[in-house]
């Protein structure tokens, strides 16, 4: 089955940058990739002589999803990647696939995505004078969770408990002869790592919009 072979070739060539794939359908494969490996994925795909179809941009609340559609001898190949709204940047593929020039310009105008090193940035659809900071199809930063739940979500992902232990309470506990912290998930590195891994495996970190580098929820 050539769909399976094509998917496996892409996954093997891209390596860890290939995040996941949808179930293979007749004449369609879909692979989710890290934005950093987009150009590498396209280069691999070019070996199969694809026809570029379109880039579909989708506002996903906290992110903008970009779905690069190609046609490889009758099989639709979708490379899905995501740019976070805080940065909204990704490398251009126009130098690899010239036909993507207008599609990138369209996503740039309507969704506010900056395609780095695009050879001819500028207007495509919107009238002159349209403010560049108001892409019409880009919605506001919106989480999957209600804002009121964010402090609880942040604390759960980072420590495994719904409320942090304050230094003041630690002192008060000690004054009363209690250990400053109970033997909870946040009190040992091993337990904390385990709980954080659980958050990753359940996908709750992603749903809550947790930034592991900054150790907090993403903000607008």
């Amino acid at each position: 089955m050539r769909e399976v072979e094509l998917l496996e070739h892409l996954q093997k060539s891209i390596g860890s940058g290939a995040v996941s794939s949808a179930p293979v359908q007749k004449r369609k494969i879909s692979l989710t990739i890290e934005p950093a490996v987009l150009r590498k994925a396209v280069e691999v795909l070019l070996k199969h002589q694809p026809r570029f179809v379109i880039i579909a941009a989708v506002d996903a609340g906290m992110d903008v999803d970009l779905l690069y559609h190609f046609d490889v001898k009758g099989v639709v190949v979708v490379l899905k990647t995501t740019v976070v709204k805080e940065a909204s940047e990704i490398n251009t593929i126009v130098d690899l696939v010239p036909a993507a020039e207008w599609a990138e310009k369209e996503a740039a105008e309507l969704f506010g995505v900056n395609f780095r090193a695009h050879p001819k940035p500028g207007r495509l659809l919107l009238p002159e004078g349209w403010p560049s900071d108001r892409p019409p199809l880009r919605g506001p930063f919106k989480r999957a969770l209600p804002e009121q739940f964010c402090p609880v979500a942040e604390s759960l992902v980072s420590t495994g408990v719904t409320g942090p232990m304050s230094p003041l309470m630690q002192r008060r506990r000690e004054e009363k002869g209690l250990p400053p912290s109970p033997p909870a998930s946040f009190s040992s590195d091993a337990s904390l790592r385990e709980v954080q891994e659980l958050m990753r495996r359940t996908g709750f970190d992603e749903k809550a919009g947790y930034d592991w580098e900054k150790k907090r929820l993403r903000h607008k």
Binding site: L156, G160, T162
Partner: peptide
């Protein structure tokens, strides 16, 4: 005590 416990959670 239960070492390493996390929130129940609520």
């Amino acid at each position: 005590e239960l070492p390493g416990y996390a929130c129940c959670p609520d």
